[in-house]
Amino acid sequence: MKNLEIPGSRDVYFIPAVSFDAESGVCSISGESYLEETVKFYMPLYEWLREFISTAKKPIEFNFKLTYFNTSSSRCILDILNILKDYEDNGGVVTVNWHYDEEDTDMEEEVEDYMIESELKINLVPM
């Protein structure tokens, strides 16, 4: 299967950079997420992950490097975490790292909330 690459940009909306590697299973979302049609943007990411999970069956390392996301995006991030949690529950090997600025206590809380909601372990990694 193909890699998924979306270049990030910051114009009227903030598009996060997406890099999903089908060979290594290393995936990342970086930058800022504030979009015109949030679900439409994230849908191909869900589809890629579901295909990878059902065909490659390899370990996934998912790296979040988001410095800002609005509340619409926050729901889509939860959807990604839930897909990863399902994979883990079904025997997949999943590592989730959340890279953040240590001074950003709001982000630290967000990650704690995501851990509670998804029941997935998320490693907080200072940037």
Binding site: T38, V39, T71, S72, S74, R75, L78, D113, E117
Partner: peptide, 17 residues
């Protein structure tokens, strides 16, 4: 917020969240 985020999304997300 966690409870509300678990509910289905409206057309433009949710003003409540």
């Amino acid at each position: 917020k966690r409870d509300m985020r678990g509910t289905p999304q409206g057309e433009h997300g949710s003003a409540h969240i």
